[in-house]
Design a protein around this nucleic acid. Sequence first.
DNA 1: TATTGTTATACTCTATAACTATA
DNA 2: TATAGTTATAGAGTATAACAATA
Lengths: 164, 164
Amino acid sequence: MTTPTLRGVATKAGRDAWRTLTELFFDGEAQNRFHQASASIGVSPGLLKGLIHLDTVTGVPMRDLADHFGCDASYVTTLVDGLEEHGFARRDAHPTDRRVKAIVLTEHGERARATAMAVLFEPPACFDVLSTAEQRQLRDLLAKVAAADTTLHEAVPHGLAAPA
Amino acid sequence: MTTPTLRGVATKAGRDAWRTLTELFFDGEAQNRFHQASASIGVSPGLLKGLIHLDTVTGVPMRDLADHFGCDASYVTTLVDGLEEHGFARRDAHPTDRRVKAIVLTEHGERARATAMAVLFEPPACFDVLSTAEQRQLRDLLAKVAAADTTLHEAVPHGLAAPA
DNA sequence: TATTGTTATACTCTATAACTATA
DNA sequence: TATAGTTATAGAGTATAACAATA
């Protein structure tokens, strides 16, 4: 189980920014965007979360998936079973440790992932209130934050952070 | 069922900004923040989502909750049952239409909501890379976007958008 | 007749516990 | 002995369908 990152220190502006961001996600227009995205490729939200964290190049050990998602290993088995049934991923052998299975995306999985991400990454209509200059500002600020998020770049080179 | 807000038109910068924001939520440090927040008050994520959308002043018809969340009415019954069992909400009669039940937060529910929000709204550590000036910029840009999100301000005056 | 909400029911999602194989 | 993954099972979350009360 991943330990929560709760510090209790942050500037007022930073707290407000994060709060608004959270509101936008959990109660705004885009509130069920993740559900839409997974529905667009006929999988459950759980499967899409897995799909997003994988890639066609680097096999991710199932144990790492459980750690990343903070879930039980048995659920990872269920997840990977589901991905395999859809033809989206496969279990590869680990080169040195025969206990671990490295999960890699198939090409079919890669395409499904791209489809889902197109839905997921479509900005909500409210973004239109920002001028182009403001949208660039916002993009740059968020990019800086994301670059500092260690979890986001942990083990997966071509993970979610790769440009579409 | 709420119709998805997919337009297909947006500036490149706007799309990138939204994408990064989505990444931050679904694959970054704060990836399971909502789960933590609901655990902090001993409810399921579903119940917290309901809690967040309610308040102590304005009763929200169950039908409106179903529309907002894009879920079935029967699930709203389950949700409100759960909130009542925790003493977090109650069903009030509608003044003119005896079919509808207006759901209002109890004081106990209000306190639980505040506790959960304190967890939910705690910014992830990666926010520290931004200077105070940058955090203010980010806050202002996001506030502008949130103000334009109609869903966020639909029927609930003291909803999630109210300052802590 | 149409709408709000409930009940009964079943299917999906996720965790706990006990197990096998490998290190 | 400890760790990676699986199986069996149970519990929570969510939907569908049929229903009661009210409009």
